[in-house]
C-alpha cells in the first residue's frame, strides 16, 4: 500500500500537514462506514477496509518517523536492525544523559528547559533526515534509516518529558 498515492500527494518526506488533514477529511467523508450504513454488506465491507487504510495512512503520514520509514519501504530500502542502531555509542551516551537529567529534574522549569533542548535536537534530526531522503542515494537512504530510529528514541523521551511536565503542572 502506497499511502502517498492513496492521499494523492507527492511521494516525498516534506509535506504540508494542513493539506494532508484536509485530504483526510475528504476521504473520511467518502469512505466512513456511517456514510454507507444502508449499503449492501459487500459494499460496507469494502468501504470499511478502505476507511481502515485511510486511517492507517493518515497515522503514518502524520508522523515524522513512520512517514520516513514508509518512504524507505516504498524505495525498497531495508530498515536497520536494532543491533545496528544500538551500535552507535555516542548516541547511546546522549540518551542516557537525557534520561538522567529528566529523572533528576526537580521542578517544572528544569523539565521545560529539557523539553526545549530535546525539541531543538528533534528539529535538527528532521532537517538532516529530509536532506538524506531528498538525495535518495543508496548510502543516504541507509543513513536516513539509522537517523530515523534515533529520532524515534528522541521522540519517546520528549513524550516522557512532556508527561512529566503535565504532572508538575497539575500538582
Amino acid at each position: 500500500m502506497n499511502y502517498f498515492s492513496l492521499f494523492d500527494i507527492a511521494q516525498q518526506y516534506q509535506l504540508d500537514l494542513d493539506s494532508l488533514a484536509q485530504r483526510y477529511r475528504v476521504l473520511q467523508r467518502l469512505t466512513h462506514p456511517d456514510k454507507h450504513a444502508s449499503a449492501s454488506d459487500q459494499e460496507k465491507r469494502m468501504y470499511m477496509q478502505k476507511n481502515a487504510q485511510i486511517n492507517d495512512g493518515f497515522r503514518v503520514l502524520s508522523d515524522m518517523v513512520a512517514r520516513g520509514e514508509h518512504l524507505l519501504e516504498l524505495r525498497g530500502v531495508e530498515l536497520p536492525s536494532e543491533q545496528e542502531t544500538i551500535g552507535d555509542i555516542e548516541f547511546l551516551m546522549e540518551q542516557m544523559e537525557l534520561r538522567e537529567s529528566l529523572a533528576s529534574a526537580s521542578n517544572l522549569a528544569e523539565v521545560q528547559s529539557l523539553i526545549d533542548s530535546i525539541s531543538e535536537s528533534i528539529t535538527t534530526y528532521i532537517e538532516h533526515i529530509s536532506k538524506l531522503l531528498a538525495n535518495n542515494t543508496d548510502s543516504d537512504n541507509h543513513s536516513a534509516g539509522l537517523e530515523l530510529s534515533k529520532l524515534k528514541f528522541l521522540k519517546k523521551i520528549a513524550a516522557e518529558a512532556k508527561a512529566r511536565a503535565q504532572k508538575e503542572t497539575i500538582q
Binding site: 492521499f7 494523492d8 493539506s19 484536509q22 485530504r23 475528504v26 476521504l27 467523508r29 467518502l30 469512505t31 459487500q42 459494499e43 469494502m46 468501504y47 478502505k50
Partner: peptide
C-alpha cells in the same frame, strides 16, 4: 463497486 469507489476518491481528491 471497487472501481466506483476509486473513481469517487480520485474525483474528490482532484477537487482538493
Amino acid at each position: 463497486a471497487n472501481r466506483r469507489m476509486d473513481k469517487a476518491i480520485k474525483l474528490a481528491l482532484a477537487g482538493q
